[in-house]
Simulated assay, not measured.
Amino acid sequence: MPGILYLIPNTLGQEAGQSNPLAAIIPSEVQAITARLDYFVAENAKTTRAFLKLINAEQPLAKPLQEISIAELNVNTAATALPALLAPILAGKDAGLVSEAGVPAVADPGANLVRLAHEHGIQVRPLVGPSSLLLAVMSSGLNGQSFAFNGYLPTDTEQRSKRIKGLELRSRQEQQTQLFIETPYRNSALLEALTTACQPTTLICVATDLTLPSESIKTQTAARWKAALSAGNSPDFHKKPTVFLLLGQ
């Protein structure tokens, strides 16, 4: 009988000197399930080991960390490698799928493994934890009844502007909140592009370092963002994970 594939949420980050953040964001039952597993498929083995060390501080691991198997699944993993990752589960071993941050299989290559697990009749169990996308929608004040995640926008200036205008038009016509993310060191460039491409009345939310002590969430019109940037009042989001949202008015 196949094992179970648990979808295990990770933290969204940890600041230097911060005490163990798990108690506030990862339920104890999720920690307990994680602690008893000895096989993980992870986006990044190094960050997963760091996560398991945090788990161990709250819930002792069933095996020493060096005896726990962590197989990597990231954007460079070929589709032909997925069956080998699934093989231990098909042989009866329970496993945990872990993203580098937040919940797995959402804006995450782990979705391919989950789909294959379903094809093989493996039970998939999603566990409760922080999703930066849902937290951003919750806290933005924008439409939570209809929203769409669009991943990364083009880096080319002209293509990015065209994409933003298209998302803004759709948002205005359907009253649908549009979400997207950016490589953290490009946050400033993206916010400037939004204030340039969007209509002055379009609402823009910038949600940074969600669940961390440095968390910052602010929603205002494109016009107000543009004025703030012109005055040198840019958000403190350089190299910090940020979710951007817009709603056309």
Rank of each mutant, 00 (worst) to 15 (best):
R49N: 10
P21K: 12
L212Y: 14
Q249N: 15
E15F: 06
R49A: 13
A111D: 08
L90F: 04
S99W: 03
I181R: 00
K239P: 08
P235S: 06
L5W: 03
A227W: 02
G110C: 04
F40W: 05
W225S: 08
A111W: 04
P60G: 07
F180D: 08
P60T: 10
P27D: 11
L229T: 01
N44H: 10
T48R: 01
D108L: 06
T195I: 13
I89P: 01
R125M: 15
D108P: 07
D209T: 08
Q249A: 15
T208K: 02
Y185K: 10
L247S: 10
Q249V: 14
E174T: 13
A228C: 07
G96M: 04
I181M: 10
L52D: 05
L245F: 11
P154T: 03
L113T: 00
I217K: 14
E58W: 05
A189D: 15
P9D: 06
S28Y: 14
R224G: 05
S214L: 06
G144Q: 13
L90D: 04
A62K: 09
L52P: 04
Q159Y: 08
Q59V: 13
R163E: 09
F40E: 02
P109D: 10
N20M: 01
A91V: 13
A231P: 11
I26N: 01
Q199F: 11
G248D: 13
I4L: 09
F180S: 09
C198F: 09
